[in-house]
């Protein structure tokens, strides 16, 4: 079987790719997609740890399922927010959404 560290490295790389997307993308939908990547990286981590550390107890799997639920909720609410912002401002460029600026 492929060693645990390989999965961990894959997941870390995927996480950092997502991180880069969150930091650098202008479009809010793209930022959301990058967040989904990061959540997936976390899930991969959880499942990998479950398989290698506690395969007899479903701790990792259960947590992965909850992350899945939270990801779905986050996607729904996030996209709804983006839609409503788009209706008001006719764009969704994250950089220019600085209403909270003093």
């Amino acid at each position: 079987m492929v060693p645990l560290s390989w999965y961990l490295i894959t997941s870390a790389l995927l996480f950092c790719i997502g991180l880069y997307g969150v930091f650098a993308r202008r479009n809010a939908v793209a930022v959301l997609m990058s967040i989904e990547l990061m959540l997936n990286a976390v899930n991969l981590n959880l499942v990998a740890f479950w398989r290698f550390q506690t395969p007899t107890r479903p701790v990792g799997l259960a947590f992965a399922v909850f992350v899945l639920v939270v990801a779905a909720a986050e996607a729904a609410v996030g996209l709804a927010l983006i839609l409503s912002i788009y209706r008001q401002r006719k764009h969704i460029v994250v950089e220019d959404l600085d209403l909270l600026k003093l």
């Binding site: 969150v22 930091f23 994250v94 600026k101 003093l102």
Partner: peptide, 10 residues
């Protein structure tokens, strides 16, 4: 610099 969320994050 103010109000740019991505910049705060990184």
């Amino acid at each position: 610099q103010a109000g740019k969320i991505q910049e705060y994050m990184w």
